[in-house]
Write a protein that binds this DNA or RNA. Sequence first.
DNA 1: CATCATGTGTTGACACTGTCTACAAGATCG
DNA 2: CGATCTTGTAGACAGTGTCAACACATGATG
Lengths: 221, 221
Amino acid sequence: MTPKDVAGALLEAAVNLAEEGGVGAIGLREAARRAGVTHGAPYRHYPNHQALIAAVAEDGFRRLLAAAVLALSAAGPDPLQRFSALGRGYLHFARQHPGHFRVMFAAGEGRRTEAVKNAEAAVFALAVNEIAACQRVGLARPGDPQSLALVAWSGVHGLAHLWLDGLVDWIGLGEASPEDFVARYAAEIFRGLGPAASPPRPRRRASGPPKKRVEARKRRR
Amino acid sequence: MTPKDVAGALLEAAVNLAEEGGVGAIGLREAARRAGVTHGAPYRHYPNHQALIAAVAEDGFRRLLAAAVLALSAAGPDPLQRFSALGRGYLHFARQHPGHFRVMFAAGEGRRTEAVKNAEAAVFALAVNEIAACQRVGLARPGDPQSLALVAWSGVHGLAHLWLDGLVDWIGLGEASPEDFVARYAAEIFRGLGPAASPPRPRRRASGPPKKRVEARKRRR
DNA sequence: CATCATGTGTTGACACTGTCTACAAGATCG
DNA sequence: CGATCTTGTAGACAGTGTCAACACATGATG
């Protein structure tokens, strides 16, 4: 942190404000106050209020991308595990930074900058990649991977929102821990809601290590 | 409309404001202006700003419920069709009233009133009912219907958000109309992303009209 | 009927916000 | 050096949420 990085300090303050009180809590004057500058200074770095919010959103997508890449790198080679890790990471991020997460998707006129869209597209591209990997080994049905990824992402994204809004808690997780709950949810996206199909056919040639299934074993408390 | 229903006029004005500019556009003074009263009058009907926003959200859930009931009543007896109609109605509402829809889920401290939660729960209950109906005729796999409904609703809800945020347009609908796209999406939730399971077994006793399949057509480019 | 109390709308004030303009200090560079 | 550009400051303005004081109607109660 260079001695005078006002733009960065403002962004950091705005992120904290978002974390504390959501989009509505992001204020130019308050951010300036926390950054130790006067109320006019922000206008040298952000043209207006919306731009600061957009910067917070973009920063959020960047952090989410970093978290997702990290989760993938720790997930091992099994495509289904990797995909599940992606969803887990997404929901973990949303639950750990609810305010920031909300700002990312609190769109508006000026807020949905090109930079925000690009940052979001980068995250989405990760999901498309993993879906395509699943398709290559026959773990996902064929078809446009972008369409499949959209289905998957919609599910995870919607669950994140509903969770933040308290619906999941209202329904209850049952006896499952949040992590188990999410893993089960990812499995359900693959399985679908329809009637039980064919019995789980033996996978054709998964990667080296002993593959462990994500679903269907006893779950503790 | 009784000659003096200030509360209703304020709510209507606030709904219009939400429709025009989202949550941030809902203002007590502007609503009062549009309702033809002075800036202090709203405080006789809503204790503060957040309460007015919460009222808008609650009103939105009420309208959504009405639309969903209407869609169900026009959907015929086939459980899968009914469930699809529910999803279609949800997305139709979101796309037709994007501002209002966003307010419904723009949660915050004071905004998520008990009344809002109840209105939301009523809508969710509809989905649970339909899922249970699908289960009864073997069109959905067994299990806690609330859990299955959560999966379905997450998907539809997330798709609605992503659509409003422009991601769907960015990916492209292909050649499908929005209606076809949504119907296909609903079918995909049931089918899941996993590899093609059993060949589509003949449904047992579908409703009268010739059923047309929503899936499996060529996609361009 | 006269007299309250209660509910509703108005008015004016306060602190706060986003935004703009004018100005001061410092860096950059011909 | 002097000119120009960048960055931060200070003050103003309109607009906002919120509150207290006031005005006026309505209806109940003695």
